[in-house]
Amino acid sequence: MIIETSGLTKRFGRVTAVRDVALQVPPGVRFGLLGPNGSGKTTLVRMLLGLVHATSGRIEVLGEPMPRRAASVLPRVGALVEGPAAWSHLSGRANLRLLDAAGRGGRLRDRRRRVDDALERVGLGGVDRRPVRAYSLGMRQRLGIAAALLREPELLLLDEPTNGLDPRGIQEMRALLTSLNEAGTTVVLSSHLLTEVEALCTHVGVMDAGRLALTSQLAALRTPTGRVRVRTPEPDAVVGLLNGQVVGRSGDTVTVRGVEPAALNARLVAGGVRVTGLTEERRTLEQVVLELTGSGTDRMDRATPGPAGSRRPEEPR
């Protein structure tokens, strides 16, 4: 396994941020760690990197115990956690050159090549001498990911990698991470953006209140809902033919329940209805996560007043 933990727990005083997590990430996957704010995602990632020491439990990264073997593990890992760090008075290129010199070293020509390659990959190849403090949030994010790529890592650990990026930037980052993964890099990212994880990842883990509620291949989670969407230029004919089985209609699309797609298609064709598309509806990743983390939220609602003389739930006895 690229990452393996057992019984992993982290307490901050009375607060248990991560509770008894057993995580396995096989090599060559794109793994998305999902969960509401405060669910323990970032604390877990920081423990994997040795930035926070576990209260109890075991961690192995790239087959080595962490943090005890951090000196041999971290040079093989690229990471971006809780936003990119940089010397704000220097340019992005100068930042990367300093990081590369401190990390891999080697000949000046090789260091410059690595820095230029990393900047090109993240869309900053034309960056000028402006200091990082003048960068937009999206440019800072790209620079942080470029820094994570300098070591040509076997494992990428990224916390909210698309934060601050515009829609085009998100697409570019998705394509970059996919290409790196196809070239052999295992990608692990934590995010609250369900649509991005669904579009990018092959495997997913769901955190809730410090616990790892689920790990699975993404395809296995998206089970059928028992509904089929029918696209047709004759939606009225579908409604008339199927009547009580129709549960929704929007434009040229009719949603039908309780029937197999092949049997539905045969019935519609036999009834003389033209069908231009037929899709089995499956659960979205959002539905899966909401089912597992129903209590997780960052809302702070006011308590609902009760009858006269009653005590609000948050008031002490």
Rank of each mutant, 00 (worst) to 15 (best):
E4V: 04
V15P: 02
V15K: 09
T16H: 02
V18P: 14
P26W: 09
V29P: 01
V29I: 13
L33D: 03
P36R: 12
M47Q: 01
L51G: 00
A54W: 07
A54F: 10
A70N: 02
V73F: 10
P75M: 14
V81H: 12
S88N: 11
A94L: 07
N95T: 14
L98A: 07
A102N: 06
G103R: 15
R104W: 09
R104L: 08
R107K: 07
R111Y: 11
R112F: 04
A118L: 02
R121K: 04
G123C: 06
G125Q: 07
R130H: 14
Y135F: 15
G138D: 10
M139S: 12
R140K: 15
R142K: 14
A146W: 13
L149Y: 05
L155Y: 13
L165E: 03
D166E: 14
G169T: 15
T178F: 01
V188S: 04
V188M: 15
L189C: 12
L194T: 02
T195M: 01
E196V: 09
E198Y: 01
A199E: 07
C201R: 03
V206Q: 00
G210Y: 10
P224V: 03
G226D: 06
E234T: 13
E234F: 09
D236N: 08
N243V: 09
G244I: 06
Q245E: 04
D252L: 14
T253S: 00
V254W: 06
V254A: 03
N265F: 12
R267D: 03
R267W: 04
V269R: 12
G271R: 06
G271I: 06
R274E: 11
R283V: 06
D298N: 13
R299W: 09
R299M: 05
D301N: 03
R302Y: 05
P305E: 01
G306H: 07
G306E: 11
P307L: 11
A308Y: 02
S310E: 13
R312Y: 09
E315S: 15
